[in-house]
């Protein structure tokens, strides 16, 4: 730690060291054979002691499984309980996680019928560390697992590095870079995304009445023709509205992030990122011009930068 004073959030977080990091959680289900079977199948575990119909044992490594929250299909859900420190570090800009480590200690085997409860204690937050990915802090937690009689059956130490990704993340190994969000592409919109890869901004034009539509669909909502072609836009437009995104901060974007609605001179509107303009300089009515950026190999997105005139 440098001589500089610790920031407020860190001081406050340190004040919570030694206190519970989350409410105590009791397993939704008691230890049970079906879950043991599933786990062993997934892990390739063939030890017969774990699958003995008469007196099965739970594999000790399943210790945390019993109290773990379920996953949600979109990954947004509660796989990770919100432990003390996680939200605070997100708010301080240390939004990223690259790896965690944990060690477990087993006091006794668990048997079907045991009901496990976990209590998590916030052990502490480290001084700031400089890593290749960016500055970060380690958060440490101590888990204690008890059974239905309140007796300790196991313990766990959990350590997580929360870091602030540096803008030179490109210097990090490519595998470390989180994927930029991709669009879902249908047969109605594929031409648009293909056009971007050729650095062209293509707009659906009705084959009958020649009206332009964006986002594109299968039918002209005005004349109802399903014939269509494309028009390559000039790329000139003006800002119709805009926002500056501060929170939440997603991997792959720089914040504060300006996002605009751009009225193209052809008469359709697009959501777009802005470049070459500070968040405080964006104005409604500002003239802008398209540019194309390869955000990942083979994935081109458009953005707009200010242009002279109007």
């Amino acid at each position: 730690m440098s001589a500089a004073a610790a920031p407020d959030w860190l001081v406050q977080l340190r004040g919570r060291q030694g206190s519970p990091a989350a409410p105590a959680r009791t397993a939704t289900d008691p230890v049970n054979l079906p879950m043991i079977r599933r786990w062993c199948a997934a892990m390739g575990e063939r030890n017969p002691a774990y699958l003995d119909e008469q007196a099965p044992l739970a594999p000790p490594a399943m210790l945390e499984v019993w109290t773990m929250r379920g996953f949600t299909p979109d990954g947004s859900g509660g796989a990770v309980a919100r432990l003390t420190g996680i939200d605070e570090m997100d708010a301080a800009g240390f939004t990223a996680v690259v790896a965690t480590n944990l060690s477990q200690e087993y006091v006794r085997y668990l048997h079907p019928g045991d009901l496990v409860t976990q209590q998590v204690t916030f052990v502490g937050v480290s001084d700031q560390k400089q890593t290749a990915l960016g500055p970060g802090h380690f958060l440490d937690y101590r888990y204690e697992f008890t059974d239905q009689r309140g007796e300790v059956v196991g313990r766990m130490r959990f350590r997580i590095l929360k870091y602030r990704p540096t803008q030179v993340a490109a210097a990090a190994p490519a595998a470390m870079k989180p994927p930029h969000p991709r669009p879902a592409i249908t047969a109605d919109s594929a031409f648009f995304w293909d056009g971007l890869n050729q650095r062209r901004l293509l707009i659906r034009r009705c084959g009958q009445c020649a009206r332009l539509h964006h986002p594109p669909g299968p039918m002209c909502p005005v004349c109802h023709s399903q014939q269509w072609s494309v028009l390559e836009a000039s790329g000139r437009g003006t800002v119709h509205s805009y926002v500056i995104v501060h929170q939440p901060q997603m991997p792959g974007f720089r914040y504060p992030l300006p996002v605009a609605l751009v009225d193209l001179e052809e008469g359709v509107r697009l959501v777009a990122n802005l470049s070459g303009v500070g968040p405080e300089q964006v104005r409604i009515g500002m003239p802008v011009e398209v540019e194309f950026n390869e955000v990942e190999p083979g994935y081109v997105l458009y953005a707009f930068h200010p242009r002279a005139g109007g």
């Binding site: 669009p183 879902a184 959501v271």
Partner: peptide, 20 residues
């Protein structure tokens, strides 16, 4: 989710630009 249906496709006009 990147599924080729109309519901998912609509998010493609905002989410890749950071409106999430």
């Amino acid at each position: 989710p990147p599924l080729p249906n109309a519901e998912s496709a609509n998010w493609g006009w905002t989410v890749p630009f950071g409106l999430v």
